[in-house]
Simulated scan of single mutants.
Amino acid sequence: LYIFNLPFKTFFFTVSTQNPPTSLYSCCTFKGPQSEETEYTVSYFFNKNLMMEYNSTRGNWTGFTAYTIEAAKWWNSDHLDPLKKRIERKLLYNLTTIPTVRLKSVKRPNGEHASTLVCSAYNFYPKQIRMMWMRNGQEVTTDVSYSDVMPNGDWYYQTHSYLEYFPTSAEKIACMVEHLGLSEPMFVVWDPSLPVEQRTRIAVGLCGLVIGFVIAISGIIYYNKKSAAYITVN
């Protein structure tokens, strides 16, 4: 089980055994950009009934049955347990990796004036993520589609969102991304000043210019060294 809840930025994971039917849930609620600002809880269930729980805000274990009340007293008397829980909370916080977000426009092959904006999020963890399109500060709910969240094969994930639209100069379109690793939503604003093809041609041209400049400088340096060596020998 893995649950992610925005905007409270809460996630859970569980380890379960079938015999006996016991589950261990760990949860972090992120309240700020620092690991110390998270609330960390550990919950033990038996037959789907909550038996015992640790809460970092309270700083102790709480039992809910006669047996687990005594067990909670034993855990609370362990002076090393708070240190263990601080380490666990920090490890869970450090697992998160914020997404790299890119925004591009794709022209339709049939020559229609409508275009497709693609908002792509790469290399993030955990996989729970929320993407939303904004037009002039308002959420766009029509002509929007999403891909599945796909693993990259290296513990990270990627996903894509698509918006069909007719470009106008008066609109401000942005892709908003919410993720566990972000302290606040990320906004990527679409800039239609240059088409994708033109920006690509400019980038390729600049790369060619830089490479040509490097080759020319290298040739001049080589020629000067050869000339100096020839003059010294004579």
Rank of each mutant, 00 (worst) to 15 (best):
G137T: 07
S161E: 03
E112G: 09
A71S: 11
E37S: 12
P192L: 02
Y230I: 06
K226C: 04
L91A: 10
Y25C: 08
F11C: 14
L117D: 01
V210H: 02
V149I: 13
V233E: 12
R130G: 02
L83Y: 15
V214L: 15
K84R: 15
A71I: 08
P167T: 01
C207E: 11
Q128H: 11
V101K: 03
T116L: 12
V101H: 05
S227M: 08
M150P: 00
F187N: 08
L95T: 10
G32Q: 10
F4G: 07
A228T: 07
F46N: 10
T168I: 02
T29P: 01
V210C: 04
I3V: 15
N55V: 05
P151R: 01
L163E: 00
N152C: 05
V42E: 02
N152P: 00
G212W: 02
L182D: 03
G212D: 04
T100F: 14
W190C: 02
A114V: 08
T159E: 00
V210S: 04
W133L: 03
T168A: 03
Q158W: 01
K107E: 13
T62P: 04
N123M: 12
T57G: 14
Q18I: 11
Y157W: 09
K225R: 10
K225E: 06
L209V: 06
